[in-house]
Amino acid sequence: PESADLRALSRQLCLSYHRHFPLTKSKAKAILSGKTHGNSPFVIHDMKSLTAGQYFINCRQLPVLERQRSVLPPEEPAGELELSVFRRLQFRSAEAVQEVTEFAKSIPGFTELDMNDQVILLKYGVIEVMTTMLAPLMNKDGTLFAYGQIFMTREFLKSLRKPFCEMMEPKFEFAVKFNVLELDDSDMALFFAVIILSGDRPGLVNVKPIEDLQETVLLALELQLKTIHPDCPQLFAKLLQKMTDLRQLVADHVRLIHLLKKQEVQMCLHPLLQEIMRDLY
């Protein structure tokens, strides 16, 4: 493909990234660096602030005033609260699956692929994309949740009872290293498309058209990184290495979720997430 075509593809995917994902890397960066003109997130750093803040976890774009005058919900025992927060975060994850699906459908050629293959590409790619999407929402001290309305500290997440305390720490470790790459929104969009269009997922029927699509996106990504980050010639290679880390991270995450399902009697996994995680690894 001509470089003009590759640039057009980058622009198209970047537009789709902005259209489908409510908290982009640039928005998250603004919130984390305090450049949102007084509209700073609610900080959850202990059980008390969790009780107060959990109300917002599943609320899309709650107005600031409403947030400030909110009435605290009745307190729940610590164990119950952890499960209830986990349930709310699951709903957000299910929404994110929808967002990633819409983004995937906007990749030129994706919807023309075999329907069975589209399902497999999403099943295997969606948690990898969501994990990567989480990285810009994190810094070494904590993570944004609920469309940037909440900042939950890393120390607090580590202090939760087992196995909940083990869920986020590997994501922080990945995020801190990933954020060093300093990708921008358009780089992220192309990287997500590369992840989704992986031709080596188990069970794919027609691999060739998937690999062809991925090859074009890879060319667009390589061109873009060379243009936007000329001072970092190794960036493309470094980014591709992250795909291996992501597979391990997702495999560990799925194992932990299966363990949770066994250990927590009250835990109910969202049907969409159940579908995705069943027989995944």
Partner: peptide
């Protein structure tokens, strides 16, 4: 595969109306 991934399948086919999750 379609039977095991009904919601995912629906999300892929249905682009306009919101899917009841």
């Amino acid at each position: 595969l379609k039977e095991k991934h009904k919601i995912l399948h629906r999300l892929l086919q249905n682009s306009t109306s919101p899917v009841d999750l």
